Computed example of a mutant assay.
Amino acid sequence: MNWDCLIVDDEVELAKATCEYFEMFGMTCTYVTTFGGCIDVISENAVKLILLDINLGNDSGFKLCKELRKKTDVPILFISARQSDDDVLIALNIGGDDYIKKPYSLSVLLAKVKVILKRYETIKNDGDNREKVTINDKNEIRCGNLRIDIDAMKVYVNEKDAGFKTKEFKLLQYLYENRNRVIAKDELFINIWGDSFFSDGTLNVHIRKIREKIETNPNQPTYIKTIWGTGYMFETPES
């Protein structure tokens, strides 16, 4: 079975109501209430997006997210009544794409999910004309000690694989292709996440992780500069 959305939440009535609402608007959706149930669905079906609660009875959504990231790069949106910034940062740091606090509006949640699904379907080959450098019959970008392999979606620092996750790669690629230009946060939200209502925390965590992987000193970045109050800019070494 191909599912647009899998909801993993031990609040059965909320999960069921969300699922039924999504189906009213043409989405295929199913829900499970346990860690094991999620693994079973992922193993036997194609899923485009996961809505994941943190509290799953005796199990943890954080633990499940880590396990899922070993198997899939599909968008994972945490949905939780837990409000602390620490929970948000943990969720984003372990591979979550966004954090939605309960109680949520079904209409807003559906809009967010639809935009993310549309973006993910077109992100790799979006038909843009931004500059790419072809080397050895491969689409690659070289900048300083960085090599960005577009086709493989990998980043190498001094020819060593930096271990980029999908979202980190897309963000770095976009920053480079718009290098030496200040890019507002909203532009990054729209072009990388597909909409403009993600939190600053989402972007900040991803930028920090990228810097940790490509910068000699992440606290004094050479490539990705923060433009306070506005956004970020990728500076090439020759600029």
Rank of each mutant, 00 (worst) to 15 (best):
Tyr176Ile: 04
Ser80Asp: 07
Leu14His: 01
Ser239Asp: 07
Lys63Asp: 15
Leu172Cys: 03
Gln220Leu: 14
Glu121Asp: 14
Asn125Val: 10
Val32Cys: 08
Arg119Lys: 15
Ser239Phe: 05
Glu238Val: 07
Leu175Pro: 01
Glu23Cys: 10
Gly144Thr: 01
Met27Asp: 09
Leu77Gly: 04
Ile227Asn: 09
Ile79Asp: 01
Val113Cys: 03
Lys213Tyr: 10
Lys66Thr: 12
Lys154Tyr: 02
Thr202Lys: 11
Tyr31Met: 00
Thr18Met: 10
Ile150Ala: 07
Ile39Phe: 00
Val88Ser: 01
Asn217Cys: 09
Ile214Met: 01
Asn180Trp: 04
Ser239Lys: 06
Gln220Asp: 15
Val182Phe: 11
Glu159Arg: 13
Val108Tyr: 14
Gly127Val: 02
Lys101Tyr: 10
Gly95Asn: 03
Thr72Leu: 05
Thr236Arg: 03
Tyr120Ala: 09
Ile90Asp: 06
Ile210Met: 07
Asp151His: 11
Val157Ala: 01
Gly95His: 05
Asp149Ser: 11
Phe164Lys: 00
Glu67Met: 09
Leu6Gly: 03
Asn191Met: 08
Arg119Asp: 06
Cys38Asp: 03
Leu64Glu: 00
Leu52Val: 03
Ala17Arg: 13
Gly96Gln: 04
Pro218Gln: 04
Asn219Ala: 15
Leu117Arg: 04
Ile79Pro: 01
Arg208Asn: 14
Ile90Phe: 07
Ser84Asn: 12
Ser239His: 09
Ile148Thr: 02
Lys165Ala: 13
Ala91Thr: 06
Leu172Ser: 04
Cys19Gln: 12
Cys29Tyr: 00
Ile141Leu: 14
Asp186Val: 14
Tyr156Met: 13
Tyr104Ile: 08
Val182Arg: 12
Ile183Asn: 06
Arg211Pro: 02
Ser107Asp: 13
Val108Asp: 13
Phe78Cys: 06
Phe198Met: 14
Gln220Lys: 13
Lys102Phe: 05
Thr230Met: 12
Leu56Ile: 05
Glu215Lys: 07
Glu159Asn: 15
Val205Met: 12
Val88Tyr: 00
Ala152Met: 10
Gly229Met: 07
Leu52Asn: 04
Thr33Val: 09
Ser84Arg: 09
Tyr223Pro: 00
Asp128Met: 09
Val182Gly: 10
Leu106Gln: 13
Arg82Trp: 08
Asp9Val: 05
Lys114Phe: 07
Ile192Lys: 00
Glu11Phe: 06
Ile50Phe: 02
Ile192Tyr: 03
Lys185Trp: 09
Gly26Phe: 10
Lys154Leu: 11
Cys5Val: 15
Glu187Gly: 01
Tyr232Met: 04
Leu172Tyr: 02
Ala91Tyr: 00
Asn219His: 13
Ala152Trp: 02
Phe62Tyr: 14
Phe189Trp: 14
Ala152Lys: 12
Glu121Gly: 06
Glu13Arg: 13
Gly57Glu: 06
Lys160His: 11
Leu64Gly: 01
Glu235Phe: 02
Glu187Ile: 13
